[in-house]
């Protein structure tokens, strides 16, 4: 009665967005063992970057021209910001105790959020984001918006690209080497500083794409959208196995499903009817995180760097 296929699709779509962001957490963590709390904010700035491009284009522009430009705008914005934060905030602390970069990451997160809140024009309330023309499409009783198709395409292409990049390019192999053992990698002639910057930039690029996807799907963006979304994305990365790129995507999908399905189907469990509403869904996501940590701490697909730390 609750239109299960539609709910599954919605959950997967939400999860794909989480997955795109989670990739950034997982790459950076895999290489420098830093939970980059600011990554959610990188995602948010990407969305605002895309919006700025759109506003700069003028109102008559076709969305088919605007979308690629907005994507570029988002990727450039989030990459530049991510690389800058790495350079200015994280790199000087590379040899400091672990607490220092973590606290710095919190500081960066709050700073970025407040910069957008305080200085982006009318960002104190949500800003309208353009939507894609066309749609909705009915496919086998499931309603699909055109923005949903964008999410699917973006997620698939991004994951495939990343897999190719990491496995088959020189830089990708250098990243793997650095993740396994930074000191030895350095001895082998790998510029680890460069690898770390690339890791940040890659993650930020995906976050930028996710930012556009988010804006297109929900039609609005806001300065604080990165905080909770980032938290979920990190949960997704842990779920899938931190350091594992496919894991991040899988974790995102699982988490999206959990959030969407618990909001409806928990009610069918006897005695639990009160715990099933959208407002409980984040609680269930959190419960899943705790359960995974208890039962399978290495994540669903296992960590690529499980023997570290």
């Amino acid at each position: 009665m609750h239109e299960l296929p539609q709910n599954l699709v919605n959950g997967l779509l939400l999860g794909a967005t989480y997955g795109l962001i989670a990739v950034g957490y997982t790459i950076v963590y895999g290489i420098v063992q830093l939970i980059n709390f600011a990554h959610g904010e990188i995602f948010m700035t990407g969305a605002f970057g895309a919006l700025s491009v759109y506003l700069g284009l003028g109102s008559g522009t076709s969305m088919w021209i605007a979308i690629p430009l907005m994507l570029i705008g988002a990727i450039v914005t989030s990459t530049v910001i991510a690389v800058l934060t790495e350079r200015l905030a994280y790199r000087p602390l590379r040899n400091a105790p672990r607490l220092a970069p973590l606290i710095t990451a919190i500081g960066v997160s709050i700073t970025l959020q407040q910069l957008v809140w305080g200085f982006y024009p009318s960002a104190k309330s949500p800003r309208v984001f353009p939507s894609l023309p066309g749609g909705p499409f009915h496919i086998g009783g499931v309603l699909i918006q055109s923005a949903d198709i964008f999410v699917v395409v973006a997620a698939v292409i991004s994951t495939l690209f990343l897999a190719y990049f990491v496995r088959s390019t020189r830089t990708g192999r250098a990243m793997q080497a650095t993740a396994q053992d930074p000191d030895t990698a350095k001895l082998m002639g790998i510029n680890t500083d460069r690898v770390i910057v690339i890791a940040f930039a890659l993650g930020a690029g995906f976050a930028g794409i996710a930012g556009v996807a988010w804006g297109l799907r929900y039609g609005e963006i806001k300065f604080d959208m990165g905080f909770l979304t980032g938290l979920y994305a990190f949960t997704a990365a842990v779920l899938g196995g931190i350091g594992n790129i496919y894991g991040a995507m899988l974790g995102g999908l699982v988490l999206g499903l959990v959030q969407n399905l618990t909001a409806i189907y928990i009610a069918d469990i006897p005695g639990m009817s009160q715990f099933s509403s959208q407002s409980w869904s984040s609680v269930w996501a959190f419960v899943i995180l705790i359960l995974v940590l208890m039962v399978r701490p290495q994540g669903l697909l296992g960590e690529r760097v499980a023997d570290r730390a």
């Binding site: 609750h2 239109e3 604080d224 969407n260 869904s281």
Partner: peptide, 21 residues
Amino acid sequence: GQDHVTSGASDFSSTVNAIKS
């Protein structure tokens, strides 16, 4: 039917589905 949402959330798809059905 009745649903509760978290203030500040963006994704209301589960609520929308519940309303529709």
